[in-house]
Amino acid sequence: MKWSEISVHTTNEAIEPVSNILHESGASGVVIEDPADLEKYTSRFGELYDLDPANYPEEGVIVKAYLPQNSFLNETVEEIKGSISSLVNYGIDIGANAVTITEIQEEDWATAWKKYYKPVKISEKVTIAPTWEDYKAVSTDELIIEMDPGMAFGTGTHPTTVLSIQALERFVQKDDVILDVGAGSGILSVASVLLGASTVYAYDLDDVAVQSTKNNAALNGAEHKVKVEQNNLLEGVTQKADVIVANILAEIIVKFPEDAFSLLKPGGYFITSGIIEGKKELVRNSLEKTGFEIVEVNKMEDWILFIARRPEQE
């Protein structure tokens, strides 16, 4: 079988929505060529192994996906281009927005993309490793999350995910109940379980994300503690939580701070990421207006994470 490689030259800001568009168009996985990966984790938590700088663009990022060649391919590609171009309507910088198509043989497609995914230590305790890497823990308290990029929205090395896992590591306590809003690949749900949560309720509106979360929970032995449901944010949810985490766009975060506040136990934490620098004050104002106390504002590259707390007494 012949495949077509769809390559989108865009910005770091647009990685998540572009990846989602490619998944919805039938791609089972994406490759992200981000030059920041070459140096991102070497200073504090470890390093990425065996990455070749020649595979990465000099500026911006390239998101690649693979689709089988068929009679509908041209129509699918045009729909992809249109959907990506429409992201500007949501205030998302799509950069060069150069979309190219390359024919590739199945035997090359099946293995070539694996060179982009290596084990990476992203926090004091958590290391993310692709399933085909024979990675062993180097310390007794190291937690390894196995990911299969072929069925996930991300491998966990995007700054918004790194910030979220670092925050979860600090604020999740043993036997906590967690709500993961916009679960995507389920990596934050899995991390929460490994960090001691008793139960995680994972919600996503996308049925592909729901299945990805289920798959990755099972892959990491967390399927009995991760309860996955297709749901729009926190609509209709009544489950109280110690921590709520949401790694989604700022425009979505500001739609449900009241729901998050009402579902958090007094003293509970609302961890929100996926926020670009220009939308930081939008989210801050929304959280504070709802009654949250801002505990921390953390940053990696151009991405912001808020740790907000529901007061013990109101």
Rank of each mutant, 00 (worst) to 15 (best):
292 F>P: 00
158 H>I: 06
288 E>C: 00
277 E>L: 13
97 N>A: 08
140 T>W: 07
66 Y>H: 14
53 P>R: 15
146 E>Y: 15
112 A>W: 14
18 V>H: 02
44 R>K: 15
32 I>Y: 01
185 S>D: 08
142 E>A: 14
184 G>K: 01
131 T>L: 06
313 Q>M: 07
137 A>W: 02
302 D>I: 05
70 N>E: 11
95 G>R: 01
164 S>V: 00
43 S>M: 10
25 S>D: 13
178 I>R: 05
259 D>K: 14
74 N>W: 14
64 K>R: 13
33 E>N: 11
184 G>Q: 05
191 A>Y: 04
191 A>I: 03
32 I>P: 00
307 I>D: 06
54 A>F: 13
212 S>E: 05
2 K>S: 11
294 I>T: 13
249 L>K: 11
289 K>T: 14
300 M>P: 10
40 K>W: 04
36 A>R: 05
116 Y>D: 00
285 N>V: 05
101 I>W: 07
253 I>T: 02
274 G>H: 09
105 Q>P: 06
257 P>T: 04
217 A>G: 05
280 K>G: 12
98 A>G: 08
84 I>T: 04
183 A>R: 02
47 E>V: 15
49 Y>Q: 13
82 G>Y: 00
8 V>T: 03
222 A>E: 00
270 F>P: 00
83 S>E: 09
61 V>I: 12
105 Q>K: 15
92 I>M: 10
151 M>E: 15
